[in-house]
Simulated assay, not measured.
Amino acid sequence: MNDFMTPQQIARRAAAAVDAAVGAGRDLGLTVNDATVLHDLFSVVVHLAPSPVVARIPVVLPHTSDLDSVTRRQRSELDVTRWLADRGTPVIPPSPLVPREPVQRDGHSMTFWEFVEEDRAKEPDYAANAEIIADLHAAMRDYPGRLSFLSAADPQSLAADLATLEERPDLIEPADLDRALREWRTLEPLVRSRTAFEQVFPGIDLQPVHGDSPPANIFSGVAGDLYSDFELVTLGPVEWDLAALGPELESAYDRGARRNGMRALDEDVLAFVNAVGMLRAVATLTLAPQLPALVGYLTPAVDQWRTMPFAGGLVSPDGTVRGRR
Score class of each variant (00 low, 15 high):
325 R>E: 11
319 G>M: 12
279 L>N: 03
259 R>Y: 08
266 D>N: 15
163 A>R: 13
286 T>M: 06
262 M>I: 05
173 E>S: 12
103 V>L: 01
325 R>Y: 05
307 T>M: 10
161 D>M: 12
217 N>G: 03
311 A>M: 04
86 D>T: 13
85 A>H: 13
88 G>D: 07
197 F>A: 10
310 F>Y: 15
142 D>G: 10
241 D>L: 08
14 A>I: 06
299 T>E: 15
253 Y>C: 01
317 P>G: 01
86 D>G: 11
148 S>P: 04
20 A>W: 00
123 E>A: 15
201 F>N: 00
274 N>T: 06
20 A>N: 01
8 Q>S: 13
104 Q>D: 14
312 G>H: 07
78 L>N: 09
51 S>N: 07
46 V>Y: 06
113 W>L: 03
207 Q>Y: 02
6 T>S: 15
125 D>K: 11
241 D>Q: 07
48 L>K: 07
195 T>H: 12
31 T>Y: 03
252 A>W: 10
214 P>R: 03
93 P>G: 12
303 D>E: 15
119 D>R: 13
173 E>C: 08
135 D>R: 13
141 R>H: 12
26 R>A: 01
95 S>G: 04
151 S>R: 14
27 D>L: 03
9 Q>Y: 05
186 T>M: 03
150 L>S: 08
172 I>K: 01
87 R>I: 07
318 D>H: 04
75 R>V: 13
267 E>Q: 12
270 L>A: 06
45 V>H: 02
233 V>M: 03
272 F>A: 09
311 A>T: 02
198 E>W: 06
174 P>D: 00
259 R>T: 12
204 I>D: 02
281 A>P: 01
253 Y>G: 00
5 M>F: 12
145 G>I: 09
237 P>L: 03
34 D>T: 12
309 P>A: 06
294 L>T: 00
273 V>I: 11
102 P>A: 02
280 R>F: 05
20 A>G: 10
11 A>V: 07
57 I>W: 00
